[in-house]
Design a protein around this nucleic acid. Structure first.
Lengths: 194, 194
DNA sequence: TTATGACCAAATGACCAAAATAGTCATTTT
DNA sequence: AAAATGACTATTTTGGTCATTTGGTCATAA
């Protein structure tokens, strides 16, 4: 029962911290506010986490787990490798795109260059790359695509998707999931050669 | 003869300004230093350019002309569309990569977020995109590649190249021109499908 | 007529007092 | 006894100031 209380408090701290990080970013979030929002003493936070950074990375880790789960759920055995890859990637990027904390961190990194924000964003990218690499390796072993370096391939495909999902929107009207799937099909599945 | 003198001075100003912009960036370059380096009075600069910004864009325009020339020279009629596209793109990005002023502007935009630096870099990208778009349109008309939107295609290919030439190096050992050509061939020309 | 640099209003950034903050630990609560 | 707390402190950040620097002008010189 005592244990349950402690876990409850830890959860409350994490949720409160997630909210404040998402609102103000890493730099501008104060431990005082987190404590007040979680309705615990400031000292209590430091019984769960050694410092602000560790609390922050706990939240990011939880988010990365969520991303991995979503990607895994997007894989349906009855579909082809390429359909599955598109669905997994698209759902991961949609999650990332809508995730308030990630949005805030992107903004904070661009504006202030906070190192923690940069590392957190790199960690998310690495998680996505890791998932893709494994998925590509498996498919390559099964002969579902040409021989290729899974690392470079994952990197190239992710870049293509990020370009289409995020960068394209900056100067043009956004592309739908179907349009992106079609472009993926055209450029990377079949190639441009007639 | 009088005209020649004026052009000479203008050229001297441009060369001096290019040097200082490349050393200190847009923000930290003073018109006083440019004038001293060009060995003209400060007022003289303002007989050629209405302000610092215009002088800067004159320099950037000259660089964009150079890029276009290099790309045009990379096109050899005896080679295929894809070989030509790779050579043109690779030489443009190599020029961009080694160009001191562009390097400085990239750094300045990342660190200080100077608006002029951002605009100049966007202008370079637009020039490259414009060239590619035209080249792709022509090839599409000749039936050398599948039907595709030249704008999106140029955008996607440029992104792929930038990823491979610049971004990949940030976490891995750099790829040679031949390796990039091979990857371009694999991913975008023939596609990943077996 | 053309080039110049002394000059000026505006922008900048060095400086510093005041405020805010991460993390600690003696005290209180359970 | 164990867990929670918030007052406290060393350090960082902020906001405001003012001397210095800078882009741009224009009366003078060549």
């Amino acid at each position: 029962m005592v244990m349950t209380m402690a876990v409850d408090r830890k959860e409350k701290v994490i949720r409160a911290a997630e909210k404040t990080f998402a609102s103000f970013g890493y730099k501008a979030t104060t431990m005082d506010l987190v404590a007040r929002l979680a309705d615990v003493g400031k000292g209590t936070i430091y019984t769960f986490f050694t410092n602000k950074e560790e609390l922050f990375y706990e939240i990011m880790n939880q988010f990365i787990q969520r991303i991995k789960k979503i990607a895994t759920n997007a894989i349906h055995d009855e579909d082809s490798f390429f359909v599955n890859l598109h669905r997994a990637l698209y759902s991961m990027l949609e999650l990332r795109k809508e995730h308030q904390l990630t949005i805030k961190l992107t903004q904070e990194f661009r504006e202030v260059g906070t190192a923690q924000a940069e590392k957190a964003l790199a960690d998310i990218e690495d998680a996505i790359l890791g998932f893709m690499e494994e998925f590509i390796s498996k498919a390559a072993a099964k002969g579902e695509l040409k021989a290729c370096d899974p690392k470079v391939t994952a990197f190239v495909i992710l870049r293509l998707y990020i370009s289409l999902v995020f960068d394209w929107e900056m100067h043009h009207s956004p592309l739908s999931s179907q349009e992106i799937a079609d472009l993926f099909e055209l450029y990377l599945v079949h190639g441009l050669k007639k």
